[in-house]
């Protein structure tokens, strides 16, 4: 890989993880054009490729200041209108249904844990009723605010979501099963172990990709 490719790689890495948006791509392209011109100018002045590369990179300064200024603007544009400050009435209209579901959910939670047997039969059906209420509240909130589930579940974190979601369900199932109760502690411990394995695998894959790029 030559020094010009290294400059482009440096910029791509700095912007890695930023939300993909037209503004981000434009900023990257314009910055690369300027840096490559600066690098070539230094070579013409007699610098060695390594020295020119070092001078070009150190001349950028705080790259994250720039990344933040670009991606901050993207985030601002991506925010739905509902996230801006709303008048009280409009705000209540938007949040009302979710708040009602939330209150029901909290009441259920309190009843389930502090006073079981008062209103409903305790156990799995009651737990599921609360879970459904919570899910409905969240669905109502997202629907009324025209939001989607997608930003809540970023794609790059999918393996972790599956592990923790799966272990969470297993934990709930174990809560209601007397046989599995003694082994309850094994489930979160297993989730932590799986999380570490996934992290290591992702880091390993990234390093392999980088090696391939260098070759």
């Amino acid at each position: 890989m030559n020094m010009e490719e290294k400059i482009i790689l440096y910029i791509n890495r700095a912007f890695a993880g930023s939300p993909a948006a037209e503004k981000t791509e434009e900023a990257k392209e314009a910055l690369c054009a300027d840096l490559l011109e600066k690098y070539r100018g230094l070579i013409e002045k007699g610098h060695s490729p390594e020295a020119a590369y070092q001078a070009t990179i150190s001349g950028i300064g705080d790259i994250f200041e720039l990344v933040d200024s670009v991606t901050g603007e993207n985030r601002e544009k991506a925010l739905p209108s509902s996230s801006k400050i709303l008048p009280a009435a409009e705000s209540f209209q938007k949040w009302g249904p979710a708040a009602v579901c939330g209150i029901f959910f909290l009441l259920w939670l309190i009843r389930f844990y502090l006073a079981p047997g008062l209103l409903f039969a305790s156990g799995l059906p009651t737990f599921l009723l609360g879970a459904v209420l919570g899910a409905l509240g969240m669905r109502a909130f997202l629907h009324r605010n025209r939001l989607s589930f997608a930003p809540l579940l970023p794609k790059e974190q999918r393996p972790y979501q599956l592990v923790w979601g799966g272990c969470g369900l297993l934990f709930l199932a174990a809560l209601f099963s007397r046989r599995l109760n003694p082994a309850l502690w094994l489930i979160p411990a297993g989730a932590v172990a799986l999380h570490q394995v996934i992290s290591a695998w992702i880091a390993f894959s990234a390093s392999r990709k980088e090696e391939d790029f260098h070759e």
Partner: peptide
């Protein structure tokens, strides 16, 4: 005096805004 690219581009964005 030479501007750092990060400062330069951050200023561009601010001026454009």
């Amino acid at each position: 005096y030479e501007l750092k690219e990060a400062t330069l581009y951050t200023t561009f964005r601010r001026l454009e805004k």
